[in-house]
Simulated assay, not measured.
Amino acid sequence: MPGGWGVVFWIWLATPPGGAPPDPRALAQQAIARMNLRAITIGIVPEPGPVSIGIIGMPTWMWAENPGTTTWGPQTQTASAGGFMVTATAKAQRTVWTMGDGDTVTCTGPGTPYADSYGKKSSPTCGHTYTRQGTYTVRATTYWVVTWAGVGQSGTIPLNFTDTTTITMGEAQVLNS
Results as ranks from 00 to 15, higher is better:
residue 170 G to E: 02
residue 54 G to K: 03
residue 39 A to F: 07
residue 106 T to K: 08
residue 80 S to F: 00
residue 55 I to C: 10
residue 121 K to R: 15
residue 89 T to I: 12
residue 4 G to E: 07
residue 86 V to H: 00
residue 164 T to Y: 02
residue 175 L to F: 10
residue 32 I to G: 04
residue 152 G to T: 04
residue 47 E to L: 14
residue 42 I to Y: 05
residue 23 D to Q: 07
residue 111 G to R: 02
residue 176 N to S: 14
residue 79 A to G: 05
residue 118 Y to P: 14
residue 46 P to V: 13
residue 38 R to L: 11
residue 104 T to W: 04
residue 107 C to W: 00
residue 173 Q to I: 09
residue 71 T to Y: 01
residue 47 E to D: 13
residue 114 Y to T: 06
residue 81 A to P: 14
residue 151 V to I: 01
residue 170 G to I: 01
residue 74 P to T: 07
residue 103 D to E: 05
residue 99 M to S: 01
residue 162 T to H: 05
residue 97 W to T: 00
residue 8 V to Q: 11
residue 170 G to D: 03
residue 140 A to W: 01
residue 159 L to Y: 01
residue 151 V to F: 00
residue 9 F to D: 09
residue 123 S to W: 09
residue 52 S to L: 12
residue 63 W to D: 06
residue 44 I to L: 06
residue 135 T to Y: 08
residue 32 I to V: 06
residue 82 G to I: 11
residue 61 W to C: 06
residue 144 W to E: 04
residue 25 R to Q: 08
residue 113 P to S: 07
residue 97 W to D: 00
residue 3 G to P: 11
residue 168 T to E: 10
residue 14 A to L: 15
residue 54 G to C: 12
residue 80 S to D: 11
residue 105 V to T: 00
residue 25 R to I: 09
residue 72 W to N: 00
residue 104 T to M: 03
residue 3 G to Y: 13
residue 76 T to M: 02
residue 147 T to E: 15
residue 145 V to Y: 15
residue 2 P to Q: 15
residue 173 Q to A: 12
residue 81 A to C: 14
residue 17 P to S: 15
residue 163 D to R: 15
residue 111 G to E: 03
residue 63 W to A: 07
residue 48 P to T: 11
residue 133 Q to L: 14
residue 49 G to I: 13
residue 34 R to W: 02
residue 119 G to N: 12
residue 168 T to F: 11
residue 78 T to G: 09
residue 137 T to P: 07
residue 158 P to K: 05
residue 71 T to W: 01
residue 135 T to D: 10
residue 97 W to M: 01
residue 21 P to M: 10
residue 100 G to C: 01
residue 132 R to A: 04
residue 65 E to M: 08
residue 84 F to R: 09
residue 59 P to M: 15
residue 99 M to D: 00
residue 132 R to I: 04
residue 102 G to V: 03
residue 21 P to I: 14
residue 130 Y to W: 09
residue 2 P to Y: 15
residue 78 T to Y: 06
residue 88 A to D: 02
residue 119 G to K: 12
residue 28 A to Q: 03
residue 66 N to T: 03
residue 31 A to P: 13
residue 30 Q to C: 08
residue 111 G to N: 05
residue 112 T to D: 13
residue 35 M to C: 03
residue 138 V to W: 01
residue 24 P to Q: 00
residue 146 V to H: 07
residue 2 P to K: 15
residue 15 T to L: 13
residue 80 S to A: 04
residue 70 T to L: 03
residue 96 V to W: 10
residue 121 K to C: 14
residue 142 T to E: 06
residue 18 G to D: 13
residue 135 T to N: 10
residue 109 G to T: 10
residue 137 T to N: 03
residue 69 T to W: 07
residue 113 P to F: 08
